[in-house]
Write a protein that binds this DNA or RNA. Structure first.
Lengths: 186, 186, 186, 186
DNA sequence: GATGAATGAGCGTTCATTCAT
DNA sequence: GATGAATGAACGCTCATTCAT
């Protein structure tokens, strides 16, 4: 059996962090939302900051693995990017909270991720670099290309978080994939 | 003569907000940086929150005016977008602080802007909508198109804030303008 | 067989109390040092305070018995005091921890000892009172005489606890015994 | 005008520290006793620990100066020690609190006093060392002699703190001075 | 207008103690 | 007996805000 209380704390706190912001969420809020005593948080996490970091890394880094697996199963660069976008937007629709949390969390505020560890961003960069090598992606600085692609994917999601785009995100994937193709294709 | 002290407070606080984050910046920090007493902040701003809002709106809304002026002087949709991007990236290079502040603060603060007030985002949307009408921009949902364009423009700036892209941003404008053209052109 | 766990707790905690102070030692520290669970402490002691009291009394009161036995076997008042000092200083050198604990804890904990129970202090007082009666000790208020004697004996030990005197204490016994003789002899 | 509030905090807290112990006195207690808000403590002292240290050092170190002045005005070693004892016991009777605080505070717990700074203990040691040099004090290790003398002086005061000796301390000075003379005289 | 000492609610965190297993 | 997760009151401390000067 997995650690029930730790999970309760984690699930309750992402929700609060997304709704109210990390700084505006108190340990008291978290305890109340998780139905536990405030002190119990500290049996499972060293500090509130450690809880935030755990939440971020335990979702952000596994997502890299998932995206890498998805990417490997697709044949071409454009199919790789397409399946990644579709996966992300469907996952967002299925449980927006954790994605909102990742979108909202200031990367700089969380502990630095050691070099060499795969992140969703590094997976994207790898796909694009390989695309350039194979000629599927036009000649362009891979770093700027990565961020242009990220912009196309993340900005609609961010807009959705703040209510500027409404309804499920998945149907928007077509437009995004199309845009990716236009920006990157050779 | 404009309110000297108010300006000192404003200038000192954006710097701190960008460097340390809004929540992590105390009124004591602000007073020290501005060379004034803590209480003096409250002669010029109702609260710390009001200071943040003032800082955001007094830069964000005038930027809309500026971008609208720029946009009006350009002949075609693509030239409009190009001059906007070049203006933004040069302004970022000239004084990154205020742009970083807007990038960091944007969400949450935008909620308070009444409908009908022009924002940089609404200027972008207007340009794109007009482009669709004139046929310069391909047929696409203007809302998603606006956010695709914003993603292309803002993500490289965000990446710069977090040190993933280094050096001046202005030379990157070419790649962004090119991408905008590919995504939007009919 | 005596209560093994209780002994483990007692031994582990004196060490911690001496090294870090009673207030700075947590029940968690004690459990870790004793190799038991935190809750187990409460099977053996009603509270942390009761543990401290037990530790103090279970060493302080038996010490009175020991000193009284020693005292009884010596012929003269001065020999009584001499053997007491030598015993104390040798015991301190052999296991400073428990003596340091008594030196540190003494005040406040002594309040709980019922009248009529022999303590090291009461043994000293008895020896001195008898000395006055037999004429071995000069005429002096027995209460002040007791504390003058205690001062001569305890202050070097206290100085050793705080590192102002180093090396074994036993060789210092000569000087202390000599001083006791000078202060008390008729 | 001196800092009224800081003085109020200092005076209120020594009283509490002596009555309840440092660890058992909370910042809330101090604020209530001083008639101020809890936060105000931190306008005058960096932390509770710093308050304790300030209290200790601002009384302990000046006492060294006072004792040194007293000592210089006396002609012989024994007169020096006599006036020191009389001064201490009269000061204790006049305001026992601060003396109790110094007696109770664990020296080791407060910040280390830098070498070369005069303390009451170092003044005592100096007087005794000079006494040995002039022949007024018998040949004896100055370090042990200092602590024997300290024991004679402090133990009656400590006994008074814990109620084992009652009434004013000053009349006891005669016995202590006599004892000092017996222990130290050549 | 400016000051800065004072405020006090509320923060993140600790830890002696309890109790179901 | 032993466990260790859970508790929650209480801690030291922070900081946006106020107000007498």
């Amino acid at each position: 059996m997995t650690d029930k209380t730790k999970t309760r704390i984690a699930e309750a706190s992402v929700g609060l962090f997304v709704r109210k912001g990390v700084a505006q969420t108190t340990t008291k809020d978290i305890a109340a939302a998780a139905g536990i005593a405030e002190g119990t948080i500290y049996r499972h996490f060293e500090s509130k900051e450690a809880l935030v970091e755990h939440l971020f890394l335990s979702n952000y880094l596994p997502l890299a693995k998932t995206l890498d697996g998805i990417q490997k199963r697709a044949a071409t660069t454009m199919r790789k990017l397409e399946t990644i976008v579709r996966y992300l937007y469907e996952a967002y629709d299925h449980d927006p909270t954790i994605f909102r949390f990742m979108l909202i969390t200031e990367h700089g505020a969380t502990a630095k991720i050691p070099d060499g560890i795969a992140t969703p961003v590094s997976v994207m960069r790898k796909v694009i670099k390989e695309g350039i090598k194979t000629g599927a992606v036009r000649r362009i600085d891979p770093q700027i290309a990565t961020h242009l692609a990220l912009g196309l994917i993340l900005q609609p999601a961010t807009a959705h978080v703040y209510g500027e785009i409404t309804g499920p995100l998945a149907p928007r994937a077509n437009d995004v994939v199309d845009a990716l193709s236009r920006v990157l294709s050779a």
